[in-house]
Structures are given as C-alpha cells and as structure tokens.
Amino acid sequence: MKISIVAGARPNFMKIAPIIDAIKIKQNQGLDISFRLIHTGQHYDKNLSDTFFQELGIPLPNINLEVKSGSQAEQTAAIMIGFEKELFKFPADLVLVVGDVTSTMACSIVAKKEGVKVAHVEAGIRSGDMSMPEEINRIVTDSLTDFYFTTSTYANENLLKLGVEEGKIFFVGNVMIDTLLNNISKFNEPPIFNRLGLNSQKYIVLTLHRPSNVDEEKVFADLMQNISRIAKDFKIIFPVHPRTKKLLEGLNLNLPNVHYIEPLGYLQFNFLVKNSFLVMTDSGGITEETTVMGIPCLTLRNSTERPETCDFGTNMLIGSDVGLMEEAITKIVAGKWQKGSVPELWDGNAAIRIVDVLIKLYNIKP
C-alpha cells in the first residue's frame, strides 16, 4: 500500500509525526505499507516548518512544492498544480491529509479528481464560523473524504448529521496529543526564559493570528491594550506570527508588560506553555495541549471547533469581551478555575489506531 502524506503548515507537522512513526513500526513488522511525504511549503518560515522536522524526528519530505505566500486563491491553485504533478509522477493508493489548512483542502480535491481515495485525520470538527478560512477547508475536505478519522464524539455527531456513513467514521483520538505525550520529557527552556527573568507560573503566554483579531489595526490595538491592562501583574510573552509582525510594525503600542518574541520551535514553545500561569490564544490546537497539560486557557474567539476543551478541559471562550476577560483572570488568580479532565482516547495512541484501521481496510499482510 502506497500512502501520500500531505503537510503544509505548523499544526500539520505535529499531526503527521506520530502517523509516520506508526507506519514505520508496521514496516518493521514486515507489512507492505510505504509513504511519500509531501510538504506543500504553505508555511516557509524556518521556525514554522523546518524546525519541526528536526525536533519531532520527521524524515525530510520527498518533495517540497514551495508554494509560499499568496492570496487564498493563489495559494490553493499553486498547491493543486504542484500536487497534481506529484500524483502523476508517484501514484498512490491513498492520500492522507490532516487538519484544516489550505493544503488539506487543495490536495483532497486533486486526489479525488485523480480517483485516489482520501483519508482525513481530524475530520468532522466544526466551529460554525464561515468567516474562518479553516471552516471552509473542513467542509470541502469532509465532503470528499473516504475515511474519516475523528478526535471526539462531537466530530462523529457532526459527520453523522451530514449523512456520512457510520462505517466510514473511525473515532481514534487525537494525534496532536500523541506528539505532546511523546515529547513532553524533551521540552527545553528557550533562551528568553532567563533573558526576561521568567519564573514558573508567573507569566502568561499569548498567541494571536486569526484575521478577526489581527487584520484591523484598531481591533488589534484595542485587544492588546486590554490584555496588557487586565493582566498588568504578569509578564506577557507573545511569539509573533509572521502575518501579525507586519501589523505590529505599523502600530505604536507602548505596553511595558508585553514581550514580543520570534516564533519558537515545538519543544521550546511548549516548555513556555507547560510552565505558564495562563495561556491566551485564538488557536484551536493550543487549547488541546493546555487541556492535557492542565493549564488554564482563554480563547479569544466567539466559537470553537474543539468544544471538548471547554466542556471537559481547561479552556473558556471569551471572544473580545473585556468583562469576561477580567472575570476569568480573577478566578484563575483566586485558584477557582476548572481543573478539567482529558477527553476520551487522548491517550497517545491515536496514530497507531489510524494505521491499524488502514491495514484492515486495505487487507495489508506481510
């Protein structure tokens, strides 16, 4: 069995790492299963892509399509053109896509038009917010998918409501958590920890990259000023995404407790998260990691595609509501925050389950 595995952006690398490891285990057992790793180049900043291959032990990609930046349409088109050529040259029995980035959607379309089956890891999640490009990517990908690998019962329910056959849905758990648990002992302190005089549980980690938060100067400036004011007793560590950096350069924000840093690799960033007092973010994936690590998390969005992080975990949606932000931080300081629990099957074995399902579906034998 030949599998083409697609990765294009930072979250993808965290999801494919344990899947590749699981495939290698089966190869060592003599099973006829192989893969080609296709890096679309959607993220091309070294700290957003290359570093992840080194830290997570991912083999170098067989090809990098090097699509880089552009509008949604330009990037989608470039990925489709490049991946079509790849599939012509190296036919596959299955294209495996992960997550909800542009690469996920674009490569699924190409695969189906070439008559190749698609497996979607992290299928079925929905935020209900059609202003998010990721939501459109999810909907399109799941409309084409043959095998749906899900992280939660919420995702299963979403797919069943859409009319997906139950036999095509496989509740396997969360590969992001596989990677987290596989690497938690390897987290290492970034140089900025000492340089900024940070102490465990005495600082806040902030990440922002959603267009609704960072694309308009006034919205972004107001949000940053409110966060700085409400969390005035804490140092705020803000690894700045490339798209956000451009906007920051044009603003004159004098926020003495906010420290802007370059993006960090996986092991150093998660060291910061694990030792933080609180995480504030508009990322979905980080809410999963904080849930497993038991770190309080405030999501600066009005919806989430990962409701289990709120219902079972340590996450709370606050949007841009200043009152909610103040109330939440006061609760956390008082030690009255929800302790949370780990959702079902977030146990570090999701990738093994995925590969076991594929072996059974394709009747792969030694």
Rank of each mutant, 00 (worst) to 15 (best):
A17N: 02
I20M: 04
I25H: 12
I25D: 14
K26R: 15
Q29I: 10
L31C: 07
I33D: 01
I33W: 00
F35H: 01
R36V: 03
R36T: 05
L37M: 08
L37E: 03
H43F: 04
N47K: 13
N47Q: 13
G57L: 09
L60S: 15
P61H: 06
I63T: 11
G70K: 06
G70L: 09
S71M: 11
A73F: 12
A78T: 07
I79E: 02
I79S: 04
G82T: 02
K85Q: 15
L96T: 01
V110L: 08
V110D: 04
E114H: 15
G115A: 07
V116G: 03
K117R: 14
V121W: 07
E122H: 10
A123W: 07
G124P: 04
I125M: 15
S127F: 06
D129W: 03
S131L: 14
P133T: 04
E135I: 02
N137I: 05
R138L: 11
Y148K: 03
T150A: 08
T151W: 09
E157D: 15
N158A: 03
L160Y: 08
L162W: 11
V164Q: 10
E165P: 07
G173S: 04
N174L: 03
V175P: 00
M176I: 11
I177M: 03
T179S: 13
N182R: 15
N182K: 14
I184G: 08
K186E: 10
N188T: 15
I192D: 04
N194W: 14
N199A: 13
N199L: 14
S200E: 15
Q201R: 15
K202G: 11
V205E: 01
L206A: 02
H209A: 01
R210F: 01
R210T: 00
D215Q: 12
D222E: 14
D222H: 10
A231H: 00
K232V: 09
D233A: 09
K235E: 06
K235C: 03
I236F: 01
I237Y: 00
I237H: 00
P242D: 03
K246F: 08
E249W: 08
N252G: 12
N252E: 15
N254M: 12
N254W: 10
L255M: 06
V258C: 08
V258N: 06
I261C: 09
I261M: 08
I261T: 10
E262R: 14
Y266E: 03
L267V: 05
L272H: 00
N275A: 05
F277I: 06
L278Y: 01
V279I: 12
M280T: 02
E289S: 11
I295F: 07
L300Y: 03
L300I: 10
R301C: 00
R306V: 02
P307F: 05
T309C: 09
C310D: 11
C310S: 15
T314Q: 09
T314H: 07
L317C: 05
L317D: 04
V322P: 01
L324A: 14
E326H: 12
T330V: 09
V333G: 02
A334V: 12
G335S: 05
K336Y: 10
W337I: 12
G340T: 07
V342E: 00
L345T: 03
W346S: 02
N349I: 11
A350I: 09
I352T: 15
L361T: 12
L361K: 14
N363C: 08
K365G: 05
